[in-house]
Design a binder for these strands. Sequence first.
RNA 1: GCGUCGGUGGCGGAGUGGUCAAUCGCACCUGACUGUAAAUCAGGCGCCCUAUGGGCUACGGAGGUUCAAAUCCUCCCCGGCGCA
Length: 395
Amino acid sequence: MKFDITKKLTGANARAGTIATPHGEIQTPAFVVVGTKGTVKAITAEQIRNLKIQVVLGNTYHLYLEPGEDIVSRAGGIGSFMDWGGPTMTDSGGFQAFSLGVAFGSSVSKVATGEELLEDEIITSERLAKVTEDGVEFKSHKDGSKHLFTPERSMEIQWKLGADIIFAFDECTSPTASYEYQQEALARTERWASRCLDRHNQLDTEHVQALFGVVQGGRFQDLREAAARTMATLPFDGYGIGGSFTKADIGTAVGWVNAILPQDKPRHLLGIGEPGDLFSAVEAGCDLFDCIAPTRLGRHGTLYTKNGTINITGAQYKQDFSPMDDGCTCYTCTHHTRAYLCHLFRAEEMLAATLASIHNLHFIVRLVERMREAIIDGTFAHFKESFLKNYYAVY
RNA sequence: GCGUCGGUGGCGGAGUGGUCAAUCGCACCUGACUGUAAAUCAGGCGCCCUAUGGGCUACGGAGGUUCAAAUCCUCCCCGGCGCA
C-alpha cells in the first residue's frame, strides 16, 4: 500500500490523496462502503461498481463465523469471493467487543448524545462478548457457541480473508465507560497493537496487506493524545480512529489525534458517516470513513436528500411522483418515483431495500467525492457551508 | 317456518356481571438507527379537555334486572349451520 497526498487545504487539516492498493487506487477522502458478511446488503457487485464505490469493508467476526475464513481464502479472498475486484478492507472484530458486549440489548450507540448513564449504572440482561487481557470471548450471536478472539487470531483470520487493508484488533469502548475504564482499555488496546504487528509480520512476509493501528481513548483529550503518540511510534501503514465521541466533539476529538499522527499515513475514522460528521472529519484531516448508515437507513426506509433525510414509508409519499432527491443522478432517482418506493416498502418488496440502498450509497459516496473535489479546487469551506445549510435547515 | 350458534374498535379475534376504552395479531400513524446482533427496533392508534389527570360516547337495535352490564333477561334486526 502506498499513500500520496495530492493537496492539502490551507488553513485546515483537510487533504486529498491517493491510496494505492494491490487491487486499485482509492482517491481520498473516500467513503468506504460496509459489506460486513462479504456483501453490501441488497446490492450486487455490478451495482457496487456502477455506484463508483472505491472500497468495501468486510468484518472479521462475521466472516469467521460464516462461512469461515478458510472458505473465503479458497475463494481467493473476500474481494474475489464477492466478485468485487477493487480494494477491500476488513475490520478486526474489535467493534463487536462493544456491540455484542456492553451495548448488547441496550440503546447505547457509538455516537454519544452526552446523556448516557455510566456503565456501572446500566442494567444489562445479557452480553455476548467479554474482554480479557488475552482477547475477547464471544458467544456467537447466531448459535451461542463460544469463541475467543485474540490479536493474533484476528491477524490470522484477516490474513486469510485477504483484504488489502486490515485493522489491528482493538477494544471499541462504550461512551458510557468511565475515564478509568477508558484508560485501562486503551492500555490493553496498545498492548494488542504490538501483538498484531508481530503476528502480521510473521504471516505477511512480503507485506502485501496494509495494517492500520487503531487509536482509542474515548472522549478524553489526554487519553486520545497519548494514544495517538503511542500508535504513531509503531510501524503501522495507517491508522483507524475508533471508539466513541459525543457527536458535537467528533471534529475536535479527531483533531487532537490527527495533530499527532504522522501526516504521510492515511487516517480512517471508523464507523462515522452522517453527512455533518463527514464534513467535520474531513476538515479534521481524515481520509477514510466507513458507515453502515446508508445501507441500514435505506433498508429501513430513510433516504438522504439535500434537504435532510425523509422517511419514504410515510403516507405523504404515497402519491409523490417526484424522485427521491431532486436532481439526484442515481439509478433509483433516474428510474423511479417516491410513490413507487413508498409502495415497495409498504408491500415489503425486496426491491425496496435495493433501490433505497443504491440511492443512499450514491448520496454519501458522491458527497465525500465532492468534498475531495472541493479540497482540490480550494472551495471546501464554501461547499461545506452551502451543503449543511440545506441539509440541516429547520423548516 | 322450527331449532341452534353467533353479531365486540378499520379487519381478524379475546373477554362472558365490577380492576374494560376493552388482551392479542394485522392494518394504519410517528420516531429511532453512525467500524451491521438489524429487510430491525420503539412509541401511538374511540372522541374531547385548563392532559403522568379528567370528561364523554361505545361492544347489532330497543327496553329491562342490578349499586354496577360488552358480559344476565325480553323483544326486534342481521348472519352461519341443521331440519323442514
